[in-house]
């Protein structure tokens, strides 16, 4: 099968007064038709910048320094602004965390959804558009669509607004949906409803979804494959079951141990990852996670580990699993002590 979307060695930086913030530092992955790929990682790991790079929605001080983004094999980076606008919404759509800031507070919900349809289908009449909008409102399970059509965003609850955002995103039946923390601002009860909605719409419309979140629980319930990001790089990628049952990277393992689970008993202590995420200004000496890693060896702080494929669908960027590591014969006395090389305490 041919990938629908390919991100190749993407590097995105921001030019700031303090220097170059290297937010994405060489990210590679493919998205295939019909799959839901999760992207997880802590705040600042580059998830949003990576996804904004795909549709070129970056801030003015951003530069894509290297790499390419292919949609059905065609580079999106070579497209003109106009061509990109055509793709946005129609082929690739996005849903963000905060629905209020992406909705116009002064325009009725029905009109806002209708605009999206009109832009991509100028031949449709007003009535035809209204019929489609009502259909979409039903699709995202908004009760009483006729009544809701003329209401303003502030008459909707947070969960209902997110349904509206999903309706706008799905207005032109895109093949790829990029969802950036679409449920992070919602209550768990409402999150559960939205996740179910996304899963059933994905099946119904056969979309591919790139699902960005910092919640491993949400990934476990939603995705078929997972990418774990840290410091602007992919640390591990695996099929969903492999990642949860055999996490390899110390960062992935650390994330899992620091998470509470509703079906564990209280005695299972939480094991936090010490320290805090790295500053994205400037270069890293070695692995970005080394300063917080319990298993770090001397080499980890000096050289960036290469990516290793454990099998065709499971890759890890960690010295502990590389052949090189074995050849270098890292001896136990080289294991860094708990304090040396650690980052700041959070």
């Amino acid at each position: 099968m041919e990938p629908i979307l390919q991100v190749k060695n993407l590097r995105t930086s921001f030019m700031t007064a303090n220097g170059e913030v290297q937010a994405v530092r060489g990210v590679d992955f493919d998205l295939y038709p019909g799959e839901i790929v999760g992207v997880v990682g802590e705040s600042g790991s580059g998830k949003s910048v990576m996804s904004m790079s795909i549709l070129n929605l970056l801030a003015d001080n951003a530069v894509i320094k290297d790499g390419d983004i292919l949609y059905w094999g065609n580079s999106l980076l070579n497209f003109s602004k106009k061509e990109i606008r055509k793709i946005r919404g129609k082929e690739i759509a996005m849903v963000f965390q905060d629905p209020m800031s992406s909705l116009n507070p002064l325009m009725s919900i029905g009109k806002q959804i209708g605009e999206m349809i009109a832009v991509h289908n100028p031949e449709l009449s007003k009535l035809e558009i209204k019929v489609q909008v009502l259909d979409l409102l039903k699709k995202v399970r908004i009760p009483e669509p006729e009544k809701r059509f003329n209401q303003l965003p502030n008459e909707f609850s947070g969960g209902m607004r997110q349904r509206v955002m999903i309706a706008i995103a799905l207005a032109c039946a895109p093949s790829v949906l990029i969802a950036d923390e679409p449920t992070t601002a919602l209550d768990v009860t409402i999150q559960d409803q939205i996740l179910k909605l996304l899963r059933s719409l994905q099946e119904e419309m056969q979309m591919s979804i790139l699902f960005i979140t910092h919640d491993l629980g949400v990934v476990a319930e939603t995705c078929t494959r997972v990418i774990v990001m840290y410091g602007g790089m992919i640390m591990e990628e695996a099929a969903i079951d492999d990642l949860f049952e055999q996490p390899i990277h110390p960062y992935t393992k650390g994330l899992m141990k620091s998470m509470p689970s509703i079906n564990q008993d209280r005695k299972g202590e939480l094991e936090p990852i010490p320290g805090s995420p790295p500053d994205m200004l400037g270069d890293f000496a070695g692995c970005p996670f080394a300063p917080r890693c319990k298993e770090a060896r001397r080499i980890c702080g000096k050289l960036l580990p290469p990516e290793v494929y454990l099998d065709p669908t499971h890759r890890v960027r960690c010295w502990l699993v590389t052949e090189q590591a074995k050849q270098i014969k890292i001896s136990q006395d080289e294991v860094l002590t708990n304090n040396a090389g650690r980052g700041n305490n959070a």
């Binding site: 996740l195 990934v219 476990a220 949860f244 998470m259 509703i262």
Partner: peptide, 15 residues
């Protein structure tokens, strides 16, 4: 019961 059921379970198998 509903609140408990809404919490995502970080294990795909159990989920």
């Amino acid at each position: 019961k509903g609140l408990l059921g809404s919490v995502p379970i970080p294990s795909p198998r159990l989920a």
